[in-house]
Design a binder for these strands. Structure first.
Length: 926
RNA sequence: GCCCGAAUGGUGGAAUCGGUAGACACGCGGGACUUAAAAUCCCGUGGCCUUACAGCUGUGCGGGUUCAAGUCCCGCUUCGGGUACCA
């Protein structure tokens, strides 16, 4: 009996070998170049991994192994983002401590990951809920509290420097990021008491306590960051969210807006992801202008990108939350305004979105147009957002569609400002055309192009002191408090109502035990239940915990030096590993984690902890693997199921059926009867004796019964087959449904590979005989293609090439070591288990992981001159193929040697030359 | 609404810089081996016409540039993703 490819035996043997010999252990090694390949670490959910999760992990594993074979010292770690809401929600329901379920889930994840044969250095594992880890999350927070952002230096500075500045000259000559523009003298500063000083400094700290409009989710009992809310409901759980002002810890991410924007240019990320971040940061250049209030010395400041439209302002609008509302509303209007504010407050985000009716109310007050001197009514409406710009706008209904809708609804005048525009039906929003109706008070824009008019107006208002040029960003500061249990405790205590940071020597501040994971009776967060939650001096500790993104914002740095208890990362490790060369993960983190960690890293860079300003040089977004659900069709009010082709003849209800009892859309009827008690006596209407199921592509999830577990695939086909098949499915960045049909193809490839290396008796067939030229050509075509394709993350075409190469070598009956050894090394990143087996069978006693990636001998790849003729103008040209890297001189010689050759024309950038009889025009370089 | 991306056989997909479209795999059809099945191997497989040789046609639709277009340009259609009263 011939010995066949026994993947179970092979895979278990070499997994054990890798662990025993610490093959994947990595250390700093200045004699070798470093390479850092990182996966986005998972949140260990209770559902375990499905076949979609490992897609990115397999890709990064292949790349890591490839880089290692090419002589790089590769850091490829893994860990867990283990704080978060689901574990806590589960704890509330079951009473089980989140630490217990988290540990259990991690153990399950580890078991599943281990089956697939990844080359992680598990000695470097991190968990965000581990005190040794979150000590540094707390530490970074303290440093942010003790820093402010200097706009001139474009970096974070110690808050003590700012205090010194206040001592010297108050707020004079200050250009720093802040929550509100304050103005005081050095004497005033010195006269302040401790409390007032601390309140003042809070306005500048990078981590600060601020009253901000937050997304409050009553169901979850916590606030959420902007990226944690989608379509007005929470990402976790899908609960409604309302806007509310609360005093919360915030991070001054907005201070870094410009650097976050600029930094994108140097990154090797996809254009679409960079674009998403650019939109999220939302830089817009415009002007701030002051509108004096009629009968008062005060002025409202507004922000506009269309300064040129100042002559078309027919009203102003304040956000309902604007502080001006209370001060401006006249007694006659007060009742109506109060009613409006009350109604707006009650609406959830979702209701605001679903219902886009134009609403608003007149405040009774007027402002004065700084150019025309005319009074303009001030309205209040929720289409103006408190959080953007100044929370007040000048409305130009002729040239802004939202202002237009409002003017139409409340019968306000509309003044067109662009020559020839028609505003009878809708506004004219385009920034094109020549300006009209715009002259007064020393400014004449008439006849100018819109773009010139904007520039002229900005210059004018600045010179007259009516306003100033201003850049606004959509990016908001991150709200950093969560009223939850399962997160990092803040290293903060309160004295006389003011927050103070713990001393670094007191870190980590451990998460305390509580009797229940719910808010207290008085509405305080769960930490309010912790006994003795205070400092040794008896000061109360902060009751909020940090959000999910806190722990994931600097984990890539911690992997460099995970056991260091004196620093987040040692200077030595940081200087060597620098930053992540390849980061693999999903696009869903584009506006969350990938913004926060860039911010966090820039801050650490500013304080000298991180060696580079950008954490992730190149980013690969793997697509999602969707589920392919199957359906059976039950005839209404019966227990009879009708096959897909006949279902239209009946009144049927489609029902999800477990994909694991369906094969090639044919239902296993017995398994179906056994699946659920209700179906035990189910009847079937078949076609051709079979029950055909319907199908649909949906998210892979338990409730759709379409989850395919990788363990099952590994069991049936082996890890190498799973790895290769996942890569073979298509380009790594594309989303696609999982379809187990087709996996036989790659499994067959591995069996045939095994057969190539062995004779009929199962003995190694490799011999020391020299390879033929044909065999070497087949090998080197493979080397070139696979090397190129790995570098561009085109793993699907690598697998195809392996199949072609194997076919060629089998046809050529190749058994030469000269070919089989490099072939094994090529295979090692993709199918490490079988490669390790073959490598050792070939007589090596070290791991194939430490082999050397074969170099391509290009001289073997020169094509035999003529590819094919092309006809042009009655003459025939020939495409000839030449090896890459030839000098112009050599190309000329080669072309002249061709029977239809002649002169060569392009002297420098030779890529392609067609050979015409008597003249070379184009040469294809192979 | 705005911003990005995609569209190729029955299916997943290949074609890297504009150079023989459909590699590779699945599925399907035929055959060999076998008592039979599994496994393995061989042949065929975009469409139309043809006994065959050959020919024509063909990369969502309509134009254009080029000796040459799946690939570049202009205008659409459909699908996917991001974002949305951001002034």
């Amino acid at each position: 009996m011939a010995k066949e490819y026994n993947f179970k035996d092979i895979e278990s043997r070499w997994k054990e070998y890798w662990v025993k010999n610490k093959v994947y252990k990595v250390e700093v090694d200045p004699t070798r170049p470093k390479f850092y390949v990182l996966d986005m670490f998972p949140y260990p959910s209770g559902a375990g991994l499905h076949v979609g999760h490992p897609l990115g992990y397999i890709a990064s594993d292949i790349y890591s192994r490839f880089k290692r074979l090419n002589g790089f010292n590769v850091l490829h770690p893994m860990g867990y983002d283990s704080y978060g809401l689901p574990a806590e929600q589960y704890a509330i329901q079951t009473g089980q401590h989140p630490a217990v379920t988290t540990d259990k889930n991690i153990a399950r994840y580890r078991e599943q990951l281990d089956k697939i044969g990844f080359c992680y250095d598990w000695d470097r594992e991190v968990r965000t809920c581990d005190p040794g880890y979150y000590k540094w999350t707390q530490w970074a927070f303290i440093r942010m509290f003790e820093s402010y952002y200097c706009n001139r230096a474009r970096r974070a500075m110690p808050i003590a420097d700012l205090e010194a500045h206040f001592d010297r000259c108050g707020t004079a000559d200050l250009d720093v990021a802040c929550s509100a523009e304050l103005s005081f003298t050095a004497d005033e500063w010195k006269a302040m008491d401790t409390h007032t000083r601390r309140e003042t400094l809070m306005n500048y700290r990078i981590a600060y306590l601020g009253n901000t409009m937050v997304n409050w989710c009553p169901e979850l009992g916590t606030v959420l960051a902007n990226d944690e809310v989608v379509d007005g409901v929470s990402v976790r759980g899908g609960f409604p969210v309302v806007q509310k002002v609360m005093r919360q810890w915030c991070l001054r991410v907005s201070a870094y807006a410009q650097r976050l924007l600029d930094g994108l240019d140097g990154l090797d990320w996809t254009d679409s992801l960079k674009e998403t971040q650019r939109n999220w940061i939302g830089r817009s250049e415009g002007a701030e202008m002051q509108f004096r209030i009629k009968g008062s010395d005060e002025a409202i400041t507004i922000f506009t990108t269309r300064a040129d439209t100042i002559f078309g302002v027919t009203f102003m609008v304040l956000a309902p939350e604007s502080e001006w509302v209370g001060r401006l509303t006249t007694p006659e209007c007060r009742a109506e305004v109060e009613a409006y504010l009350e109604a707006t407050r009650k609406r959830t985000e979702r209701e605001r979105m679903a219902d886009r009716r134009v609403t608003g109310v007149f405040s009774g007050a007027y402002a004065i147009n700084p150019l025309t001197g005319e009074p303009i009514p001030i309205w209040i409406s929720d289409y103006v957002l408190a959080g953007y710009g100044t929370g007040a706008i000048m409305a130009v209904p002729a040239h802004d569609s939202r202002d237009y809708a409002f003017a139409r609804a409340f019968n306000l005048p509309i003044i067109p400002l662009i020559e020839g525009c028609d505003v009878s039906e809708q506004s004219y929003d385009a920034k094109e055309g020549h300006v009209i109706n715009s002259c007064g008070n020393g400014l004449d824009l008439n006849g100018l192009d819109v773009k010139d008019a904007i520039a002229r107006t900005k210059q004018f208002v600045e010179s007259r002191g009516i306003g100033r040029v201003k850049v606004n960003y959509r990016l908001r500061d991150a709200i950093f408090s969560r009223q939850r249990y399962w997160g990092e405790p803040f290293p903060v205590y309160y004295k006389d109502g003011d927050p103070y940071m713990l001393d670094e020597s007191q870190l980590p501040l451990l998460l305390p035990e509580v009797d229940k994971f719910l808010p207290t009776e008085t509405g305080e967060p769960p930490l309010g239940r912790a006994k003795g939650w205070q400092t040794p001096e008896g000061h109360p500790l902060e009751l909020n915990t940090m959000p999910g993104f806190a722990g994931s914002s600097a984990y890539y740095l911690r992997y460099m030096d995970p056991h260091n208890d004196r620093a987040l990362v040692s200077a030595e490790a940081d200087a060597y590993w620098q930053n992540v060369d390849i980061y693999v993960g999903g696009t869903e983190h584009a506006t969350g984690h990938l913004i926060y960690s860039r911010f966090w890293n820039k801050f650490l860079f500013d304080i000298g902890v991180s060696a580079t300003e950008e954490p992730f040089k190149k980013l690969i977004n793997q697509g999602m693997i969707q589920g392919r659900s199957n359906f059976v069709y039950r005839i209404k009010d019966t227990n009879t199921f009708v096959s897909l082709g006949l279902k239209d003849q009946y009144d049927v209800t489609p029902i999800h059926v477990d994909v694991n009892i369906v094969s090639a859309d044919i239902l296993d009827i017995e398994a179906f009867r056994a699946w659920r008690p209700d179906y035990a006596d189910a009847e079937f209407i078949l076609e051709d004796g079979k029950y055909i199921c319907g199908w649909a592509v949906e998210k892979m999830s338990k409730s759709m019964f379409n989850v395919v577990n990788p363990d099952m695939i590994v069991d049936r086909y082996g890890a190498d087959t799973l790895r290769m098949y996942e890569m073979f499915l298509g380009p790594i960045d594309q989303s696609k449904p999982w379809d187990t049909n087709g996996i036989d193809g790659v499994h067959k490839f591995l069996r045939r590979t095994y057969r190539l290396f062995h004779d009929a008796e199962g003995n190694l067939a490799a011999a020391d005989t020299p390879a033929t030229t044909e065999q070497l050509k087949a090998l080197h075509r493979g080397i070139r293609k696979i090397t190129d394709d790995i570098e561009r993350f085109a793993f699907n075409t690598c697998i195809s090439r392996f199949m072609i190469m194997l076919g060629e070598l089998s046809d050529l009956k190749c058994n030469s070591r000269e070919v089989l050894e490099p072939f094994t090394v090529l295979l090692a990143p993709f199918a490490p288990h079988i490669a390790e087996e073959l490598w050792h069978e070939l007589g090596h006693d070290t791991s194939v992981c430490d082999a050397k990636w074969p170099a391509c001998d290009k001289s073997l790849l020169v094509e035999d001159t003529v590819n094919y003729p092309v006809s042009f103008n009655g003459k025939t040209r020939f495409m000839i193929a030449l090896p890459a890297g030839m000098q112009p001189k050599q190309i000329e010689e080669a072309a002249l040697a061709h029977e239809n050759s002649a002169k060569y024309i392009d002297g420098k950038t030779v890529r392609k030359v067609i050979v015409v009889p008597g003249k070379i025009i184009n040469i294809v370089v192979a």
